[in-house]
Design a protein around this nucleic acid. Structure first.
Lengths: 194, 194
DNA sequence: CGTTAAAGCGGACTCACGGTCCGGATTCTA
DNA sequence: TAGAATCCGGACCGTGAGTCCGCTTTAACG
């Protein structure tokens, strides 16, 4: 199978679109009022190009998201403790959730745009599955939680959903460190058998 | 203050629309593929009427939701324990969340339609505020949680968000009683100081 | 009752946005 | 450098929320 490499202009345009979209979303008040036409115009590119490169709106958002998430994924899969493997479960759950929270704080608009990317529920997205599987796997190693690890993983992830984070950090102006502390406290309670 | 009562035909049409919308949403696979035109047609009414009576899509959803929620609200505000007032905090939190979960299980499509009702985040909805205030008030009475009662209330409510409930009950076919038990177990852990 | 002004009706219409299409330009291959 | 494969981009389409306005119905009053 050939697997031909993309043409030069295609690659260049792809980058231009990613950069433009990134800037636009970061700047915008709400992700909803950035249209695909806006992105195309800002990138100096036609809509056709935009859609051929990313399929549809959520494809573009996913591509942006994955790119930003890459370092975090790396740190989780093969980095040093407490994020990386080989950390005691209890402590690793805390580290995972904290890193996810920080990521969403640093990429609020983008995360928001991705989760509310219209039609499909967030629970069908591939990246959600990755987080959930990872978290569930760690939770299973904690005595007394194995039975509910699936549900508990969902619930802990629900605590850092983009729109909730946006509401707390953006609307109510809860400071970053306070949020992190509260999440840590809550998580600790949630994974400690009474 | 005038406060004129609505005309007979207006009242009749309003009821027709509510009934039609209720039936349509209950029947539908996903709330998204029921358009306002569908509702109007099913109610035997023009779109103009529909929009005059409810303002916009989310107004219609809210009206449906409030109607369904009425008995639950009653039980919470002035019913007998464990839901009503005068219940020990720990136990009442469990009862509140359980009743909210059951409500969403019984009105899955509607709750889903309301939460994803496009533009505005669920955290700006008036009914969310009511649940949150109520829950926070009760949590404050639990020793050791007072400081984080705001965050904890948000997080517990996040555990029963409509799309998560839909995912678990609808896609993964987790049985009702199992969900209730898992939520109760999780909640107990979350409101018990280590 | 009969009259009349206000309230309500409904469906054709607008508008915005995601997504498609295709004639022409550009880049790879030989 | 010729030909073919790929890509470009903006005009175009479908859809669905929300508006508009001429006509009908209601209800208040003489």
């Amino acid at each position: 199978m050939p697997e031909r490499k993309p043409r030069k202009d295609a690659a260049r345009n792809r980058e231009a679109v990613l950069a433009a979209a990134d800037a636009l979303f970061a700047r915008s008040e709400s992700p909803e009022d950035i249209t695909m036409a806006d992105v195309a115009a800002a990138a100096g590119v036609g809509k056709g190009t935009l859609f051929r490169a990313f399929g549809d709106r959520s494809g573009l958002l996913r591509a942006l998201y994955e790119a930003r998430l890459e370092p975090v994924r790396e740190a989780i899969e093969s980095g040093p403790p407490p994020l990386g493997p080989g950390t005691p479960p209890h402590q690793r759950v805390l580290a995972l959730l904290d890193s996810a929270l920080c990521f969403k704080l640093d990429n609020r608009r983008l995360a928001l745009a991705l989760e509310e990317s219209g039609s499909t529920s967030p629970y069908q997205a591939a990246h959600y599955d990755r987080w959930h599987n990872l978290l569930q796997g760690v939770l299973e190693q904690i005595p007394g939680l194995a039975a509910d690890s699936d549900f508990t993983a969902h619930t802990l992830l629900a605590a850092i959903r983009a729109d909730l984070v946006e509401h707390l950090a953006g609307e109510e102006d809860v400071p970053r460190e306070k949020l992190r502390a509260q999440l840590a406290a809550f998580t600790t309670r949630a994974i400690t058998a009474p």
